[in-house]
Amino acid sequence: MDYEPYDYSPIVDREPIRWPSGARVAFYVGLNVEHYPVDRSGLSIAPHTVGLSPDPLNHGWRDYGPRVGIWRMMDCLDHLGLRASVMLNSDVCARYPRIIEAGRARDWTWVAHGKDNSRYQADMEPDVELAHVREIVDTIERATGRRPRGWLGPALTETFHTPYVLAELGLDYVLDWANDDQPYWLNVPGMMSVPYPIEVNDITLFVGKSLSGPEFVRIVRDQLDQLHAESAHSGRVMSLALHPFVANQPFRQKYVAQALEYVARHPGVWLTTTDEIATHYARHHAPGPTCPRVRRAAGQGPERAGAGRVPAGPAAHARDRAGVLPSGTHPLPRGRRPARQRCAHAGSPSGACGGPEPAVATPVPCRWRT
């Protein structure tokens, strides 16, 4: 397939990134708050019962997160002054409203993360996917009072149309393409990729590799120290992906707290969220030539009916890269443009910019650390 969601860009050739207050590393906690239906399989710790319905062994392990683990995590984040960027299944909103209430009180950032974590974002036609994602985003907006700007697919899954569907619905960044230490623009107008960790992730380290708590702390420290050393001339992004049913088991809690405290106390770290990273990057780094506003300003794109619409997949990709978005060829239903088309171009009233720069946070000791 002649389609690339992004261009190759060596990190050594890019314009430098400067984070607020002179910070060198932007750090966010990627807190996964998920729902696993009792009659469907999901991430499992005991393979011999996978496929059974019900599967009390594996389902119970996963269900520890919203019942117990999340509250242990909140306590630690509160003591460290850390706000979570929550990867939120929309089914959580109805099933665990107490978590939504607690997150709203803490001003968490909400990133749409599919309907539940047993259904992958795959094998959908564009119209079906548009309706599916619209329901997810609208559900999260109703429950949290804030429309999500970002997306992480369940198990980081997408179709080739997903970024276009997200843009159609007004979202402006994705975390699925975990291939960089910096944000960058996708080849979809107004859509950005924000880094998300695959390896510095409790599922990978604790479940996949069966590492101990002290090994986990050492890996988080090494990750931050290396990124900090590399960021003298251009900022980096670091995230720690955490799942309360894994990270917040009692015997792991003090090690997770130690790792988070090391990051929070490290000099030159901006304790932030995915939304704030996307906003700052969009403010200071203009989109590439795929942004319709930039193309029109350069006289590269036609001003006619349909020229401002977001294409919806690989077939439209070549036309868009050439600056041509012909009317009547949009694979998604007509008339379904987002209320605000975020090209995120610096100075654009419809962009993602706005509000004061957040300061680097000053942490306080965490009582979970021993």
Rank of each mutant, 00 (worst) to 15 (best):
Q253H: 15
K254G: 10
V256C: 09
V256W: 02
V256L: 04
A257I: 06
A257Y: 12
Q258V: 13
A259F: 12
L260F: 03
L260P: 11
E261M: 15
E261P: 14
V263M: 00
A264M: 04
A264C: 10
H266Q: 05
H266K: 01
P267Y: 02
V269F: 03
L271K: 14
L271G: 15
T272R: 00
T273N: 02
T273Q: 01
T274I: 04
D275F: 00
D275C: 03
I277C: 08
I277P: 10
I277A: 07
A278K: 00
T279C: 11
H280M: 06
H280Q: 12
Y281C: 08
R283S: 13
H284C: 15
H285Q: 09
A286W: 06
A286I: 08
A286G: 13
T290K: 01
T290F: 09
T290I: 15
P292F: 00
P292Y: 00
R293Q: 11
V294D: 04
V294H: 03
V294A: 04
R295F: 00
R296M: 10
A297M: 03
A297C: 11
G299R: 01
G299F: 00
G299W: 00
P302K: 02
R304S: 12
R304I: 15
R304M: 08
G306N: 04
A307Q: 13
A307K: 02
G308M: 03
R309D: 07
R309L: 09
V310S: 09
A312L: 15
P314G: 05
A315E: 14
A316M: 15
H317W: 09
A318Y: 07
D320G: 05
D320T: 10
R321I: 14
A322W: 00
G323N: 05
G323D: 05
V324L: 10
L325A: 11
